[in-house]
Design a binder for these strands. Structure first.
Length: 253
DNA sequence: CCAGACGTTGTT
DNA sequence: GTCTGG
DNA sequence: CCAGACGTTGTT
DNA sequence: GTCTGG
């Protein structure tokens, strides 16, 4: 699954990597080695540009990097208090769940990450791992987003929120956990972001090639506390024999 | 009809 | 907003 | 995801 | 044990 990740690239770098424009307006959060639920994050969306009256132009699309808050708040929510419970959406059910289906059909995004953290349950304390692409590229987690209107006196301010899709862990990832974020290979980015494709069913399966290209390493327990936030959080640490990943631990029988 | 939910993970 | 449960 | 709080009265 | 906050 995905409840914590690292995102340290600035919007300009991400815009280049995702063939998008920087739509953050200088409001982007800085480098973050310990992104946690409800924090501000960067995401990539593709939308039909709107004119001054708010009408979308169906003939063109623009891909941009945006600032969102992690934890989806549906437009009908009374307040934002449920956001922390909605940081993930199961890919198996996202199209059917009332809280997610509109977003899954019409408002998909990519959530770029340097890598994500996973806590391996076991004897004693859980061991955190960092999982990232071996080549330094960003991974693109499949996401959905929503707009919630915050009333401030007479003003209504949009709050953009998002959730990351999860799927069954496959390959090497099963050694650490039985769920993982849905990471999309580059050749599925456009289809995932396509605002005119209401049914993304074909894109919801985990991709073995993407997973095979991931690196996985145990990291310091310091990542547990979000007060810690520095580059060393993603550094490998040595493990005792008894704490090594157990490949069969989560194999389904 | 109205009221209440609307989510995921992990653990037992 | 929309569906489910009573 | 993990960490940290979890409470009231009265007095300053 | 369970909820909230980040």
């Amino acid at each position: 699954m995905c409840g914590r990740y690292a995102s340290t690239k600035n919007p300009a770098l991400l815009a280049a990597e995702f063939d998008a424009v920087d739509g953050t307006g200088g409001e982007a959060p800085g480098p973050d080695y310990n992104v946690a639920p409800t924090k501000r994050v960067l995401a990539v969306v593709e939308r039909h540009p709107r004119d001054e009256e708010g009408n979308a132009d169906p003939g063109t699309v623009e891909r941009s990097v945006r600032v969102m808050r992690w934890g989806l708040v549906p437009h009908w929510a009374k307040d934002t208090s449920g956001a922390a419970k909605m940081i993930n959406a199961r890919s198996e059910s996202v199209l059917a769940k009332p809280a997610y289906r509109d977003s899954a059909a019409k408002r998909r995004c990519l959530v770029p990450a340097d890598g994500w953290y996973e806590w391996q349950p076991g004897e004693g304390r859980k061991q955190p791992y960092f999982i990232n692409p071996g080549d330094g590229s960003s991974l693109a987690m499949a996401g959905i987003w929503s707009v919630w209107w915050q009333q401030e006196g007479d003003e209504r301010r949009p709050v953009i929120t998002c959730a990351v899709l999860t799927t069954d862990a496959i390959g090497e990832m099963t050694a650490v956990h039985h769920r993982m974020p849905l990471v999309l290979p580059r050749d599925r980015w456009s289809a995932w972001l396509d605002p005119d494709r209401p049914d993304p069913t074909d894109l919801l399966a985990p991709d073995p090639a993407v997973v095979a290209a991931l690196e996985l390493r145990p990291v310091s327990m310091r990542v547990n506390s979000i007060r810690n936030n520095d580059p060393s959080l993603v550094d490998a640490v040595a493990l005792g024999e008894s704490e090594k990943p157990e490949p069969t631990l989560f194999e389904l029988s």
